[in-house]
Structure formats: C-alpha cells, structure tokens
Design a protein around this nucleic acid. Structure first.
Length: 782
DNA sequence: ATCCTCCCCTAC
DNA sequence: TAAGGTAGGGGAGGAT
C-alpha cells in the first residue's frame, strides 16, 4: 500500500503536520533520489540499533557484532545508556531482574532473522521475557497501573488505530489493488512476457512430439470461458513465515496479542457471560426464538482475534476470526506472529505483477485474491488450464515465497468453489459437466452471498448442503429471502452463474466512509464533538484524494445496549450495541471537513444518545459526484502576473512517457501515478483547465489566494493540500510552475512565518529542486 | 412503479 | 489488554 492519506491518516488527517511533512520529505527523497537505495547490499536495517550481547549466544557475540556492523547497527562491548537492545539467549531470573527494562532483552534470533528478512523485525516478537500483560501486583505494593491506553479522545487515536487495524488494511489494500489493475489496463501494456515464455515452451514441445492437442477438451466450444480463481493460502501467516522458517509446519496464527494468560481482569469472564446473555435476549426478540449464542471466550484468555492461521492450526480446530484465548484452548502449541502490513503489501504487489505478465483480464477481489479470465491466454499459449495453473503457481511461489491455490472453471462461481477443493497449495479444475455432482455436497455457506445469517436461516429449514438447497423451489426461496437473493440462491446451488468478470476500471464509487468501533469512550459532548470533527476530517481527506464530493452525509453510532455491561469484556471493544443511522441529504455536494462536521454534529444531536454510551462512530458520504472545475485553474492564476488575470505563456517543458523513469512512476501514490500516466499518455499536454479539474488543485488555488489576501493563519489542511499540489506538479515535471508557486508563497505570505509556513516552502522547494534535476538536468537557482 | 431512508448482510 | 473497516447489494416499508 502506498503511504497515501487515506491509509495512514494522521489524527484528523492533518494535526500532526510536522510528522506529515517529515514523512513527505523522506518520501520525496526516496522518489527522486538518483540512487534509489543507498545500501544495495541490504544493509542499513539496523540503523539506530545498538546491541550489547550478554552471555553465550548462537550466533556468537562476534558474529552478531559482524551482522550489526554490516547492516548499519552498532555493537557495544559494555552495556551503556546508548544501548538499545540487550541480546541474550537465556538468563537466570536474578540477572533478568537486574537488567532494567526487560522489554529490550531480545533473543539472538532477532538479529539473524532480521537480516534474513532484509528488514528490522519487531523485537517484541523475540523478547526473552515476554512482558506479563498486567503487572504482577503484590501485597504491600501500590497496585500496578496499566499502560495508558489510547482512547478516541486522544490526539493520535485515529492514526494509531488505523495503523493497527487489520480490517482497515484489508479494506484499503483491496481498493488499492482494484485500482492497480485498472491502471495496468489503462496503461495498455502491449507485451506479456509470461505468455511469451509459455508460447516459446509450447513451440519447443511441438517440435519434439508434434502433438497439437493441448487444449484439453477437444470438443469444447470456442466460446467457453475458462475462469481462474487465485487465492493465497492463509495469506498473513504465509507472509510472516517467510522470515520465520523455524515456524513452518507448526500451528501458527497472526494476532495482536501474544497469548499470555492475563490475570489482571478477573471480572472478564463474568462480563463476557453478561454480554452473551444480553446478546441472546436481543436475538430472541428479533428472531422470536431461543437462539443460542456460542461461548467464544475462555476465562482469562486473550480476546485478541486470530486474523489468519496456518493449516496445521486449522487441523486443531482453530479458525480465522476466533479469539486467541479460545484458539489456545484448542491448540496449546499455537505460536503467534505479529502483523506485517508492509510485507502483505509487498507480496500482494508481486502476486499481481506475476499474473499481469500473462494477461490483464483480471478482477481483483482483494490484496490476495483475484479472478483471471484465461480464455484468450490459454488459446494463445496453447496450454491446458491446469498446465497454466502449475506454471503460474510455481512462479508465484518463487517470486513471493508464499503459496497460492487456484481453482478453474467455466464461471467465477465454479472457479471459486474449485479453489476450496484445491487448498492449500493446490489446483483444481471443475468442468461444467461435473458441476452438478460436485455441488451436491458443497456446504451452502460456501456459496457467495451466504454468510452467517442466510446459512442459519437455511439450517432452520434443515438445509446445509447445496444438494438440499436444490430441492427448495424458487418461489419458496424468494418468499423467504426476497426476489434477488432468492434467485441467486436458486441459481448458485445449481452451479449456474453467468456473471462477467469486472476487469476494467470503469467502476464508479458510490460512497466514502470512515468508521471506528474500537476505543470509543467519549466522556462528554465536547469530546464527542471533537472526535466527530476529526473523523469528518478523515472522510474529507479521503474524498479529496478521490476528487469527489457528496450530497448525502450519514452518521452511524453504535450505542451500548440497555443491559450490556458498561465495560466490555474485550478491552476497549464495543460490546453489545444498538446501531443507529441518520442521514441528511444536501442541496449542494460537500467535501470539506467543516461542512461534513457541521452535518454530522447536527445528526448526532438528532440521535440524542449520550456520548458516554457511544461505542462506535462512523461517517459516510454518498450520492457522490466529481468535484466541479473552478472558473479558472491555479496554473492560469499563477502564470498571470499578480493582480492581473492575463494569461502568460507557460515555459514549462513537455515531458513524454519515455523520459520518465519507471521506478519513479512506481514510487508515486496510486492516484497521483494514475493521473501522471493519463497525462503522459495524452502526450503530456495538460491544459490548465484539465489540470485544474482535479479538486486538490482547486483547493490549492484557494489556499494561495486566501493566504495572499488575508491575515488568517494557514490551517494545516491548507498546507497539506498545497504540498499535495506541489507533488503533483513535480510528478508532471512542471518545474516552472513549481517555481511560481514557491515565489508566490514567499512573496505573499512571508509576513506569517512559522514552522508550518517554513515547512510548506521547504516542501515546494524540494519538489522544484528535484524536478529541475530530474527533468532538465539542471540545478535550481533559487 | 419508483424513490428514499434505515437498516441488515456479506466479503475481504 | 487491543486495535470490531469499508463498500456494495439488497430488503422492508413509507412517501411520492
């Protein structure tokens, strides 16, 4: 995932201005640096790390010293204040206690495996003495104070929450790869090296035996589709195992917690029981039956969720989504691994790039899953579906270090069902003629669109397999589930699916939202309003990145249910809640944080739930439209002498695609890259109007006008937009315009110098400087 | 009929 | 401790 605002939102998006600018600067350095990586040999991963080795270790102290020195770290012969980590293999208890801060006493594997992984792994994963989650209070000592937890009312809450939320990452990575496929298609790559390799291999083989019959079914009609479903095996675990070969073959799970028993919340088990009972009552009211609620928690066990678990763990009964405490009860040998969101991004990118060497008829489902229409590719390569699957899976394994499974069939539905049979690390072809027999024993829950709710309603009618489902009439299904859902069930359980792959990027977004249902503990109205404002800022940032505005704003609150315990069993969780949504439709589309916040504050007042009872907050903007172009673009404004609207001929030089270093394009955030590629494809002749139709540009114009005209202190948001604008100009190679922006910035606003102002100038200057060097090969004379 | 609002459900 | 997001499909029921 590119470090884009909507992924790594800072606070309300902008409060951490210094941090944002620092990050932006280092990103620019990376993007434009002539030498992309200062240490090509993989060094530098220990920059800032200083180790002291205590006692005997393997690797030995001397070897560790060499590793540190070779990879940018420091080795201390004596432990000093500057020592960041103590390396030890095992220490007597007395020694451990003597070493203050056992949170920095790390097993030697940390060093070796970081080197193997090519980056600094989280040392917390290698602690010699993993911290007791809760301090061991002893009689006579003051009670241990738990580490301060970040609440929604804290300044950096949003940033921290989003950076740790697996669901947020799953969602944004999915969107990013859908866009990536769209970009690849838009770029219209003409060559498919993978396909060419296949063709070459085929020609070679033909010469050997002259056997031409490689199409599989000789009688298959030429119009028949071959759809392949590609899905990485337990993705998060597979990525983590690359750097932890010693865990291969063991039951492993990716979780936040590490699973030590937590004796600090003795009331948790009872709380959980209360929550279960409360939940059961509500289910009873809704469904009119005595629904049973499974006991998913273990007294004293971790409430952290298993994001992904290995097949060894699954054999012991562990499933994704299970609470870690319960998973450990089923599988005491279960080993946990921390998240590695950057790693997921990298591997996913390699996965997509691998498939894209064969075809761009790809529908991205998520970061680790896609449909591929292989019809054309198989015809051109003259290989059978399973031959291609074998080649592709081997290549994915070689390029990512992770395994994928593939299912093949005449439709997305059958391809997907085939994958279930193929997993793990396998492939399976499901022919149309076999579909009916195959489906008979497929669980209804395996059909798309059949989740917990539909499955349990079907189970109430004694239906758990597709074979049983086939016996229900269309009318009966539609009566219970509605017209569309009923029809889909009726068709899918028979293997009928004529859905087209959704491969191109002509998809129109319908809503943009941000939601937090964790850590929401807002003591009073003031804090609630402040949080709503921050969340509104987050949504505004996402809208800005997409160039969209919307005419409907909705607020969703999760409110503690009447009988639910005030403190949840899961730490800072939402517990059992009522969901409430209110929306307001607007005459004019909104996109800025203030306007969204205004609506949302009004809606919150309408809902009238006491903020102290809120357990979740979400803001959604819908009925979207592209932001309208301004009357005149920023470039024209800048190009004109100040005080005049007369356009001045631009001296910007035109850049063409061949002049652009591909690695530079690659380093750009997705949306900027798309814009640049589109622009370059048009011959690099963006008119001011075209450029200005992009909303951030229009807002940047407003920023500069406002700064020039008023005494108002620049808002961080304004500066953010300006920096964004500068980056776009840099991407387009418009050094002259950047200079104009810089000049204007200095002339018009020098009287309000402060840190933000200086950083804004610096950012624009950096962009200009780099652009001059890159495009014109000249130093910038400032 | 068709639209709108407020949900619920599903998928990753 | 723990990080329970996000977009889209669709249904119920009321307004037009």
């Amino acid at each position: 995932m590119k470090g884009r605002r909507n992924d790594d939102s800072e606070d309300n998006g902008f409060a951490k201005w210094g941090g944002y600018m620092a990050a932006k600067k280092s990103k620019l350095e990376q993007q434009f640096s002539a030498n992309p990586r200062p240490e090509a040999d993989g060094g530098g991963i220990f920059a800032g790390v200083a180790i002291f080795v205590n006692g005997y270790t393997r690797p030995t102290a001397e070897e560790l010293k060499q590793l540190m020195l070779r990879h940018g770290g420091t080795y201390h012969h004596y432990r000093s204040r500057a020592t960041t980590h103590v390396i030890a293999a095992n220490l007597p208890d007395s020694k451990v206690r003597q070493l203050k801060g056992t949170d920095r006493v790390v097993r030697p594997e940390w060093v070796a495996e970081s080197v193997a992984a090519g980056r600094l792994l989280d040392h917390r994963d290698y602690l010699l003495c993993p911290a007791r989650p809760c301090g061991q209070a002893r009689l006579g000592f003051p009670p241990a104070v738990p580490a301060p937890a970040r609440l929604a009312s804290d300044d950096n809450f949003l940033e921290e929450f989003y950076s740790n939320s697996r669901l947020h990452h799953i969602s944004t990575m999915g969107a990013a790869f859908k866009q990536y496929v769209g970009e690849l298609r838009a770029a219209g790559r003409g060559s498919f090296p993978g396909l060419e390799r296949l063709q070459a291999a085929g020609r070679h083989r033909d010469g050997d035996d002259g056997d031409d019959d490689l199409f599989g079914e000789p009688g298959s009609a030429p119009g028949d589709r071959v759809i392949m479903h590609v899905d990485m095996d337990c993705f998060f675990v597979s990525v983590g195992l690359r750097a932890r070969p010693h865990l291969r073959g063991l039951p492993v799970a990716v979780t936040h917690a590490r699973g030590e028993a937590c004796p600090c919340s003795p009331g948790r088990a009872e709380t959980r029981q209360q929550e279960r009972e409360c939940y059961r009552q509500r289910l009873k009211e809704r469904l009119g039956e005595q629904a049973s609620v499974p006991d998913d928690a273990v007294p004293g066990g971790s409430m952290s969720e298993v994001a992904s678990c290995s097949y060894e763990a699954r054999r012991a009964g562990v499933t994704n989504g299970m609470l870690l405490g319960a998973a450990l009860a089923l599988c005491p040998a279960l080993r946990t691994m921390p998240y590695d969101f950057e790693g997921y991004q990298e591997v996913a990118r390699a996965l997509y790039d691998t498939v894209a060497e064969y075809t761009l008829d790809i529908e991205a489902v998520s970061c680790d899953e896609m449909f591929v229409d292989c019809t054309e590719l198989l015809r051109r390569a003259e290989v059978t579906p399973l031959e291609f699957a074998t080649v592709l899976r081997r290549e994915i394994r070689e390029r990512t270090g992770c395994t994928a499974s593939t299912g093949l069939g005449p439709s997305p539905l059958l391809a997907r069902l085939a994958t279930r049979r193929a997993k793990p690390d396998g492939q399976f072809l499901l022919e149309a003629s076999e579909a009916e027999g195959f489906l008979r024993d497929v669980a209804v829950g395996d059909l798309p669109g059949v989740g917990r709710s539909v499955a349990s309603r079907l189970a109430a009618r004694g239906v758990s397999t597709c074979g049983q489902l086939q016996k229900l009439s269309l009318a009966a299904l539609q009566a219970q589930f509605g017209a569309r859902t009923g029809l889909a069930l009726h068709r899918h359980c028979r293997g009928v699916d004529d859905r087209e792959l959704h491969t191109s990027g002509q998809h129109r977004r319908k809503s943009v939202s941000a939601e937090v249902n964790y850590g929401i503990r807002l003591a009073d109205r003031g804090r609630a309003d402040a949080f709503l404002r921050r969340l509104a800022g987050e949504v505004a940032g996402r809208l800005a990145a997409l160039g969209l505005a919307g005419r409907s704003v909705a607020l969703k609150l999760m409110v503690r249910a009447k009988d639910a315990p005030v403190e949840t069993a899961k730490f800072l969780g939402h517990g059992v809640c009522d969901n409430v949504t209110r929306s307001s439709s607007l005459a004019a589309p909104v996109a800025d944080a203030e306007a969204i916040a205004r609506e949302v504050l009004g809606l919150a007042r309408q809902i009238a739930a006491p903020p102290a009872e809120w357990r979740g907050v979400g803001i959604q903007v819908s009925r979207l439209e592209a932001r309208t172009a301004p009357s005149h673009g920023l470039e024209r404004f800048l190009a004109a002498p100040r005080g005049s609207e007369e356009p001045r001929p631009s001296t910007d030089r035109v850049v063409t695609l061949s002049q652009v270093d591909p690695s530079f394009l690659e380093a750009l955030p997705d949306d900027v890259r798309q814009e640049v590629e589109a622009s370059l494809a048009r011959g690099g002749r963006d008119s001011a109007e075209e450029l200005s139709t992009d909303m951030p540009l229009r807002e940047a114009e407003t920023v500069l006008r406002e700064w020039a005209r008023t005494q108002r202190r620049p808002e961080p948001y304004d500066i953010y937009l300006l920096a964004d604008y500068a980056e776009r100009l840099a991407a387009l190679g418009r050094a002259d315009t950047l200079l104009a922006v810089l000049r204007l910035l200095r002339e018009c606003t020098a009287h309000k110098q402060d840190d933000a102002w200086r950083e804004a100038c610096q950012s624009v200057e950096d962009c200009a400087q780099e652009t001059m060097l890159r495009v014109h090969g000249e130093e910038l004379a400032v």
